[in-house]
Amino acid sequence: MIERMILIGYGGQGMMLFGRLLARVAMLDGKQVTFFPSYGTEVRGGAACYHLIVSTEEIFSPVVEEADTIIVMNQPSYLKLKNYLMPSSHLFLNSSLVKEAESFGEVKNIYRIPATEIANELGNVVASNMVMMGAYNTVKNLVPLPLFLDCLKSSLSGRKAPLFEINKLALLRGKEYVKKVYLKGEKTLEVSVV
């Protein structure tokens, strides 16, 4: 099994945290992991692109050339995703900020999740990354959710501890949303073949 992911968004949209967390959870789940942040010179607001590869086998190239999954958080990032797309890619779009300009005819699996709106409703826009995580993992089942929540909790220690509940809630909302709109009672895809 191999899952090659591209996470793209603005710096500050929490994609770094999302990617690191997912990488860590996959590692604890016994997988091989490579996570590579490639960002611009700006700390906030610049384009941030993260390559994450999770595999049961040794990972060779750390660079994602074609992605099994692409998670896109905003419009400028959306314009870059073509480089990584293949017909079998799963594309997760933050539909709150991505206004689709072109269609990717061959790509069947497109999930439009209003992550920013959902996070705003919950009262913390920064949790949009967890909405996407909830939707993503429900579809692709990359990591066990309880383990993810454990790691999320331990990553939010000290003065950040109160943020755990809202992040957890965001994650569950993402899960509900994707189930309701896209999966409609079907069984989720099994990607993990451990």
Partner: peptide
């Protein structure tokens, strides 16, 4: 830059 910044177990 790749090896320095990427994370692996």
């Amino acid at each position: 830059a790749q090896l320095g910044q990427m994370m692996e177990p």
